[in-house]
């Protein structure tokens, strides 16, 4: 009885369905794979020191943005909106009419951002995003003016030249704490 079985030739395994099985696995992996590309705003923080002497900055070169605990925005001590920041920053830095209240030169302007400990992260990012947007627009305009090309197509040395003309200077003060007082 047993001998009979072993004498029989084993049936061949059909390899035709192998492709289908592999296809199913492939599709499974294709569907489950999520390509996550992290995006975000890059920031370089200032180095830490206990009580660094703050370098004296000419008051007219400082563009003050303050955000309070209720997410209200104050630009140069006027109540304002997040959407206003970009336009006002650009006129402040370029100072096209040479007003005595705006920045002396484009490379001496400093943006000062101060927020409350109760400011929401979302509002902070919106404000930071506007500041970055203003700089990006300024660099783009400068690149078009100097090299007749888009900023992102410039060579590294040309980019540095543009950024030397309009350096990104954002100063973040330690947040004030209104809730503690």
């Amino acid at each position: 009885m047993f001998g009979k079985k072993s004498k029989k030739r084993l049936p061949e395994i059909g390899a035709g369905s192998m492709a289908d099985i592999a296809f199913l696995l492939l599709i499974f992996f294709l569907v489950t794979t999520t390509v996550v590309i992290d995006k975000g705003i890059k920031v370089v923080l200032p180095p830490f020191c206990e009580d660094c002497p703050t370098p004296p900055v000419n008051d007219r070169n400082v563009f003050n943005i303050k955000v309070n605990g209720n997410d209200e925005v104050l630009i140069e001590n006027e109540i304002s909106q997040v959407g206003e920041i970009r336009k006002r920053m650009k006129t402040f830095i370029l100072n096209p009419d040479n007003l005595s209240t705006l920045a002396v030169r484009s490379n001496s302007a400093v943006i000062s951002l101060q927020n409350d400990r109760a400011t929401s992260y979302d509002q902070y990012i919106q404000v930071y995003n506007e500041i970055k947007a203003a700089y990006n627009e300024l660099w783009e305009e400068e690149a078009q003016k100097q090299f007749f090309r888009s900023y992102k197509d410039l060579k590294l040395s040309q980019k540095q030249q543009v950024r030397k003309k309009i350096p990104m200077a954002i100063s973040e003060a330690e947040p004030f704490d209104l809730s503690m007082n």
Binding site: D38, G40, I41, V43, L45, P47, F48, N129
Partner: peptide, 15 residues
Amino acid sequence: IRKADQLRISYATMT
């Protein structure tokens, strides 16, 4: 983070 001298940070956001 500043105390630890790792000054390059980024805020992850959505588009």
